[in-house]
Amino acid sequence: MDVSTMPRSYGVTVPDWVFDELRATPDTLSTDEERMSLVHKLAARNPAEGSGGPFAALVVDTDTGEVVSAGVNLVLASGLSAAHAEVVALSLAQTRIGGWDLGAAGAPNRELVVNWRPCAQCYGAALWSRVKRLVVAGAGPELEQLTGFDEGPMREDWAEQFHDRGIEVVSDVSREQALEVFAAYGRMAAEQGLTVYNARGTR
Rank of each mutant, 00 (worst) to 15 (best):
A93N: 05
V72K: 00
T195A: 14
V88Q: 01
A70W: 07
G193R: 05
A139C: 15
I167A: 08
T5H: 10
R8V: 10
V114T: 15
A120L: 08
R200W: 11
D2V: 06
T64M: 07
M6C: 11
L92H: 11
A44L: 12
E66P: 04
D61N: 15
D101F: 06
D157W: 13
A44C: 08
A125F: 12
A43D: 07
A77R: 12
G99T: 02
K132S: 15
D157L: 09
K132H: 14
A183E: 11
R187H: 13
V196Y: 02
L90E: 12
V136W: 09
T25N: 01
R203N: 10
E160S: 14
F162G: 08
V181C: 02
Q145G: 03
V72M: 04
I167D: 07
G98C: 01
M188T: 11
A43T: 08
L102T: 02
A104S: 10
H84D: 02
N46S: 09
A70G: 03
E66L: 05
A85N: 08
E156I: 09
I97H: 10
V39P: 09
L22V: 00
A139S: 15
L179H: 07
T202P: 03
A77Q: 05
V181T: 10
V39A: 00
T31L: 07
W100C: 14
F162K: 10
V60H: 03
L179M: 07
D27A: 15
G103Y: 06
R117A: 14
P54M: 00
A44F: 13
I97C: 13
